[in-house]
Amino acid sequence: MLFNLDKKITEAIDDAASKSLWLYHINAGSCNGCDIEIVAALTPRYDAERLGCKLTGSPRQADIVLVSGPVTLQSRDRLIRTLAQVPEPYCLVTVGSCPCSGNVFKGSYAICGPVDKYRHVDVSVAGCTPKPEAIMAGIAQAAAILKEKRRGMHE
């Protein structure tokens, strides 16, 4: 188009992908320790909104999906179904050590293994209740990955 306007627009859209991050939180059977930390990151004290973060209610509008808790038997199907409903370029961020290793619950009959058995995890924030700063660092890394994914979608 005229003086490559469309290139500029797509460039702006790719850039925006890393600046506006809408979080969607899935609780896959967690002990709510990480949930409180995630919400704490959004409160005025830690203010995740500086990164452009906002909590959304439906996976259709999610950019970064935060999963907390060792994927229990009951929440396994629900986790997979919700992850399938999130529109492309999105990042999966696991909060706490339960989703990535099962933590103290590892080997129990009710645990269906770490999250990356079901979908590739982009960023995993370790710690049994990681501090809000750690969560926000994870989100910042996810933002960079999102930009690459968005660029990758052009072809």
Partner: peptide, 28 residues
């Protein structure tokens, strides 16, 4: 609103970024 809650708050162009980011996502 952010300043009233004594926090830094998003950049002034945040609504523009939100709209452009939504344009970039696939429509299901």
């Amino acid at each position: 609103v952010a300043r009233m809650q004594r926090r830094v708050g998003p950049s002034l162009l945040q609504p523009l970024y939100d709209v452009l980011k939504c344009l970039g996502k696939e429509t299901i």
